[in-house]
Design a protein around this nucleic acid. Structure first.
Lengths: 159, 159
DNA sequence: GTTTGCGTTCGAGCGCGCTCGAACCCCTAG
DNA sequence: CTAGGGGTTCGAGCGCGCTCGAACGCAAAC
């Protein structure tokens, strides 16, 4: 139900033409139902990042990952969910430093929930700000496209 | 009139709560009426970047800037407008490489308009994609905020 | 039995976009 | 006269987030 709600809101938010939100939505929903342990290649594929990066995240103490008898990494559902979260935060620009801090708080127990909440609120504002900046750039870009595409008027040499 | 149109569309686009689009809109509109030559400090201030970065952009051949009798940079309206454009493109993630290419095309004359248009179209798509990614991250972040803020349920230890 | 493929660890390297420091110059104010 | 403030050039350095290569291990396929 929570997932349904999420997807609904996402679909509402994606009012523009839809080149490829599909993959992203898959990442969101599919990841939620992960139940089987996964290999590094599978997780990398799911998240759209490289195995190198996954190992790097582990070295950075963002996740702990068990090994099988051969010493190969085994990603359980909990770890995968954390990685989905981390990947999304990275994608929206949260620095590694902050994620390391956040994860340290998570691992430190429930007492740190207020601070985590603060971080999330701040990050939410940062995302909103970025979206505003992008909107501005988008409008400017579209304006320039219209200028070039329509009448290549006196503005054409401005930039 | 073009500016009015732009601002109108920007205001429409900014439907969310408005912490600080003001400064950005100022950058857009104010920059359009630049008529006096400016110093490097003034331009840096206008664009919200450092004089160091402005010199760096010049070294990278994104702009050419005249000097006064003392060898100090003098930014004319044309150059400032180009820098406004460049800054916006940088802010929306266009790499230096691409901007260098774009500017080379601009300086190469009108024959390159189609290629420039292609670049702009591609960049527009990239911006849209980024906005979709940000939307997803925003929804996820808000969801987590709601979870933490409301009932710190069984999800609280997930991440 | 050897090749192929996927994994491991470790440390080094890289590309990007600035960012800075040093040494210098010129103008103006006190 | 001198001190301060803002500018100049040049090259080097940095922080970030990966990204890669080397050397190795194990296991299934031929």
């Amino acid at each position: 139900m929570a997932t349904d709600d999420l997807v609904t809101r996402i679909l509402e938010a994606l009012d523009d033409g839809d080149p490829l939100p599909v993959e992203a939505i898959h990442r969101l929903t599919d990841a939620a139902d992960v139940t089987e342990p996964m290999t590094i290649a599978e997780v990398a594929d799911l998240l759209g990042i490289s195995p190198h990066t996954l190992r790097y995240y582990e070295r950075a103490h963002l996740v702990e990952v068990d090994r099988d008898a051969n010493g190969h990494r085994v990603y359980d559902a909990h770890t995968v969910r954390r990685l989905v979260f981390l990947t999304r935060m990275r994608l929206s620009g949260m620095p590694m430093r902050d994620l390391q801090h956040y994860i340290a708080l998570v691992d430190a127990g429930d007492d740190t929930v207020p601070e985590r909440l603060d971080m999330l609120l701040e990050h939410r504002d940062i995302i909103r700000r970025k979206m505003r900046e992008l909107t501005l750039s988008l409008v400017a870009t579209e304006h320039k496209i219209a200028t070039y595409g329509g009448a290549a008027g006196p503005d054409s040499r401005l930039s």
